[in-house]
Amino acid sequence: MPHPPAYVRSIERALDLLQLLCLVLASAALAVLIASFGWLVFGRYVLNATPTWVEQLALLLICYIAFLGAAAGVRDDSHIGVTLFRDLLPARAQKLVIIAVDLALAGFGIAMLAAGASLMAFGWDTLLPMLNLPESVRTGAITSLGALMAVFAGTRALLRIVHFRNWAPRAPEDI
């Protein structure tokens, strides 16, 4: 298989950096989550003063950890999927199914982006209990996942369409 053109390599590098950013942010959120629960245990059992904000912060962080991780999975093309029937098809039909799945993921991402933006606008005046942050901060996780899904899956679909002849579906043993 020939090497991809320079513009494809540039796009792939940019998307790899965006995926790395997702993973770094999710990892940082996980570290903050662990530290906050350490503070919760220390406050409850040593200081005898339970920090009540930890639960709300944990709920917020879990949203970002899960959604940023899911976006990285879409970029890796490791999202959940049943490929039994696709793998039974000839290579050309497999390519069409893979592109259709990428386009469906991108469409779902656009729908999540639109719905998330609507939720963010709706919840801007409502504060998260004990954190005094707008509810929109929590729904920002949904919105960001939608945007990232649309970018990752949509770009992959477009590149596969443009280079239809020059790529092959992964064999089941490669997955």
Rank of each mutant, 00 (worst) to 15 (best):
A35R: 00
D174W: 08
A111C: 03
V101P: 07
A111H: 05
N132Q: 05
A91D: 09
S118Q: 13
A6I: 07
Q94H: 09
N132F: 14
V8T: 14
A91S: 10
A115I: 01
Q19G: 15
T83P: 02
I80C: 04
V101W: 04
F85Y: 15
L33A: 02
T52W: 08
G107V: 01
Y45C: 05
L131F: 09
A49V: 04
L148D: 04
C22W: 07
C63Y: 01
L61K: 01
L18Q: 10
A104L: 07
L145C: 10
L127K: 09
V8I: 14
L15H: 10
A14G: 14
A104S: 05
V24E: 13
M1H: 12
D87V: 06
L88H: 13
G146Q: 06
L25H: 05
A93L: 12
V137G: 00
M130K: 09
S136K: 02
M1V: 12
V151S: 15
I161G: 09
L88E: 12
L18C: 10
L96V: 06
A93P: 05
L88K: 13
L60W: 00
L159R: 10
A71M: 02
F164S: 10
V82S: 13
L18N: 10
A115E: 10
G154H: 14
S27R: 08
G81C: 10
S118T: 14
V8W: 13
S10W: 14
E12A: 14
I161N: 11
I34N: 06
V74I: 01
W53V: 00
W167L: 06
A157T: 13
L103W: 07
A115N: 11
V74S: 00
L113I: 02
D102G: 09
L18I: 11
L159D: 08
A72V: 01
G107C: 06
